[in-house]
Design a protein around this nucleic acid. Structure first.
Lengths: 223, 223
DNA sequence: TTGTTAATGCAACCGCCGTCGCTTTATTCT
DNA sequence: AGAATAAAGCGACGGCGGTTGCATTAACAA
């Protein structure tokens, strides 16, 4: 209401920004080093040179502390400047993402997110979800606008088909993502999108004559 | 080493199979209910009607207990019987996988695997890795043999491109996987594989003339 | 039946995590 | 300078997860 600035005298609220920085930095450090499960607030406090109570007062739970550390360390979007060549741009972008995902820091963050208290991480995952496919989708939308891709492809879907294999390899399978794999993924998905014009993207599942006759003998035991 | 059967007398080693079953069942139950982090061996013991010590003696760590529960509950491969129609078979298989992945049990298992002690889960993930793409890969290999797909596509790669989006949605993004999404994924990837014959799958990145001129204006701030 | 062997139950213990009450320190207004 | 206010330090406590030593019980062979 009409409560003006009304600075009450005394020590200012909000605490020391420097302390907060130390703590969040130490949190991320421990997260990379030990993972979410093994992360102990005691260790964070020790590394940050701070009493454990100080941390617990500001972030009541480990999840909240880690969420704060993640949002504080949120890496800027890749400084990506498209050349205009669709395939090259996609390969460059996805390869950059793959390499970033291989970073211990990003891996630790990605793994931690799955373990956070859902109620606490809700806002964070919503944020991530909003931005998940923006960059490849922008490139694809532009390619559609310029006529390089057919109009009836779904940019969001295509972005997902491009990004998913990289994320799957890097995060789920925990395997390296060589550049060649990125190139092959882009090649196939792009070729598929270009061919979409003449095959059935819509609901109708079989405009094209099915070739059932060719392979009736291929049956495997249900074990 | 001429030690014959030489049954030593006394209570037989190995413990009660029934007890083991109870414990592993309770472990999986708790895993679905609370997730790996929240899973407490005390609770498992309570549910299984067994003393905590019994569990700890047989499986020294929580990771080992959970791994044992997972391998004990390993679901049989999907009883999938291909019809011979490539697209329909892939859609059916992937949709079945998607629906299974949405099961709380499978979700809990998938999430837990990321949190296990790597040294303990090593064998398990190696096993999973060996079998990861077998079924779609078999279908694809058969399609290649029957001439329905070009010879120069990599079955393993194609299987990965098909499976990754489904896993990514279900596990990483924690979103539902509608059948339509599966159909679209299969459509695009299959179309891309078919088109692979005439575009560049190999190292050479640009046999096709690049259309750089079309979209030089598409540049976004690096923020 | 009886002895042998190993699994199971029981209870106590250690250590770490998270909390609480109190004291100390730092900052700002009067 | 001194009072006021809130953050930060400090120590101790309760609780839980994991461990250990010992007593008990169950299964099998002689």
């Amino acid at each position: 209401m009409a409560r003006a600035k009304r600075r009450r005298r005394g020590r200012p609220a909000g605490g020391s920004a420097a302390l907060v920085g130390e703590i969040l930095c130490a949190t991320l450090d421990q997260l990379c080093r030990a993972g979410y499960a093994e992360l102990s607030v005691d260790a964070v406090a020790r590394v940050a040179g701070v009493n454990k109570t100080t941390i617990y007062r500001r972030w009541p739970t480990k999840s909240e502390l880690v969420v704060a550390a993640i949002v504080a360390a949120k890496t800027r979007a890749l400084p990506f400047r498209p050349s205009g060549d669709l395939r090259r741009d996609l390969v460059a972008l996805l390869d950059a993402k793959a390499r970033r995902m291989a970073t211990p820091r990003q891996r630790a963050i990605a793994y931690a997110i799955n373990n956070l208290d859902p109620a606490v991480s809700e806002a964070l995952v919503a944020e991530l979800r909003r931005h998940r496919y923006t960059i490849p989708r922008d490139i694809i939308e532009h390619a559609i606008a310029s006529g390089e891709l057919p109009r009836d492809v779904d940019p969001e879907l295509l972005a997902e088909l491009l990004l998913a294999p990289i994320c799957h390899r890097a995060l789920v399978m925990c395997e390296p993502v060589p550049k060649k794999f990125v190139e092959q993924t882009v090649a196939i998905v792009l070729a598929g999108a270009r061919a979409q014009r003449r095959t059935s993207l819509t609901e109708a599942p079989s405009k094209r004559p099915a070739r059932k006759s060719a392979s009736a003998s291929f049956a495997r035991p249900s074990s």
